[in-house]
């Protein structure tokens, strides 16, 4: 398994979501995608989509207004 960082800092919705969806498609089951975001809307739609798609999601607040959404590809 590998861990991939996706830099979406400075990007507004819906770009972080679209980028994450594309990137996750390239990964294999068991891989972990870490999406760096600083747009609070993406904090809602990105985890929501990933959870609905059945992946494991964790959110870490790394700084003021900056988050890492950790998505483990399950299927």
């Amino acid at each position: 398994m590998q861990e991939v960082m996706l830099d979406c800092l400075g990007e507004a919705c819906p770009i972080p979501l679209v980028k994450a969806q594309k990137k996750l498609e390239e990964l294999a089951v068991g891989d972990v995608l870490i999406v760096q975001i600083d747009h609070s809307c993406a904090m809602k739609n990105l985890p929501e989509w990933a959870r609905e798609a059945g992946h494991n999601v964790e959110i870490e607040e790394v700084d003021d207004g900056e988050w890492e959404v950790v998505i483990e590809k399950v299927k």
Binding site: L9, G10, E11, D38, H39, S40, D63, D64, G65, E66
Partner: peptide, 18 residues
């Protein structure tokens, strides 16, 4: 609201395209 959530951040410009 963003200050109360301690979510204030001045974002960097990503590219000329943006």
């Amino acid at each position: 609201a963003t200050l109360m959530a301690s979510g204030f951040k001045i974002k960097k410009l990503k590219s000329g395209k943006q």
